[in-house]
Computed example of a mutant assay.
Amino acid sequence: MKPLILLLALAASAPHLLADELLPSWKDTGPKKAILAFVEKVTKEGSANFVPVPERIAVFDNDGTLWAEQPLYFQAFFVFDRIKALAPQHPEWQTQEPFASVLKNDLKGVAAAGEKGLLATMAATHTGMTTEEFSQTVTDWITTAKHPKSGKLYTEMTYQPMLELLTYLRANGFKTFIVSGGGIEFMRPWTERVYGIPPEQVVGSSGKLKYEIRDGKPVLLKLPEIELIDDKEGKPAGIQSHIGRRPLMAFGNSDGDLQMLQWTTAGAGLRFALLVHHTDADREWAYDRQSHIGKLDKALDEASAKGWTVVSMKDDWATIYPGEN
């Protein structure tokens, strides 16, 4: 049976499965037990903790929570590949930073350009085209591009335990959303195929759009102006603007998710917050407080203080990526 078909079959029967048959890639440790116990409480009709289906909202960060994020966010690799593809049209990039560093694969030089340099690369690769053109560019890239270390397609570096969790929650009446610092137009072309999350349930950083008529047809043009940075304090704002309900469950992995978890757990009644802690240097990466990507410091302390669930990838996940033991 193909993996997707198997997951759908599990989803259909999830309410009737025994606990050890649910979330099979999760070890039978505290985090799995906490998830199953919470879902049972809020979905049991007649109980004091019952939550109606329309209010069962679960939000997930993407980078480092649903798929890997080292040594750089995957959208950064997309930006780099686009700069290299467009370089013949921009000879000035050979000497103009941070483009020159990108073309030389000099990550330190790219980092030295700071936020201003980052915004310049985003403007060069993400704007000045229609939303349809950008969506096709992303689709073409993510269908073939491979991670420089693992050699896997980026979509093969999703976390099997989280794919099972998404399926399990939806089988129990939850609507699952991505709330990520990544670009909303970068994620929407592929999240439904990879996660089962449709584009209207994706919240991310976004730029302004402009309506135009081109060749007699209406289009939306991507502009080099920021609408929302969906990170840190921006995540609760993005949730309110796009979803309009406070989540019942929130899942993240870094300090960039702290405010989303705080906002979720501040709601009335039972709430659930979980952090994915990258502790497995053999099967993935091990990093937290000192990492330049996915730094987990303040959120880890708050999780300890407030009793949020923390998943150790090494200790709590039997499998990391799909198709691996």
Rank of each mutant, 00 (worst) to 15 (best):
Pro54Val: 01
Leu261Val: 07
Glu185Asp: 06
Ala266His: 14
Lys104Met: 03
Glu185Tyr: 03
Phe50Pro: 13
Ser205Met: 00
Leu169Tyr: 00
Leu166Ala: 04
Ile226Asn: 11
Phe186Gly: 07
Ile320Leu: 14
Arg289Cys: 02
Met187Gly: 05
Pro236Ala: 03
Ala305Trp: 06
His278Gln: 12
Pro247Glu: 08
Ile197Lys: 00
Ala120Pro: 11
Glu225Asn: 11
Ile243Thr: 01
Gly30Pro: 00
Ser254Ile: 05
Tyr73Gln: 06
Lys44Cys: 01
Tyr159Ala: 03
Ala12Met: 15
Pro236Arg: 02
Asp230Pro: 08
Gln136Ile: 05
Thr319His: 13
His16Leu: 14
Ala37Glu: 14
Pro98Trp: 01
Ser101Val: 05
Leu107Cys: 09
Ala113Gly: 11
Ile83Val: 15
Lys84Val: 09
Leu248Gln: 05
Leu274Gly: 03
Gly173Phe: 10
Glu324Trp: 04
Pro236His: 06
Gly46Ser: 03
Thr143Arg: 13
Leu209Ser: 09
Met157Leu: 15
Thr143Ser: 08
Lys33Tyr: 01
Gly252Gln: 04
Ile197Glu: 02
Tyr287Lys: 11
Lys208Phe: 07
Lys146Ser: 11
Asp215Thr: 02
Leu258Glu: 14
Met187Asn: 08
Gly64Met: 13
His90Pro: 14
Thr309Gly: 08
Lys84Gln: 14
Gln70Glu: 11
Leu103Val: 01
Arg283Ala: 14
Arg82His: 12
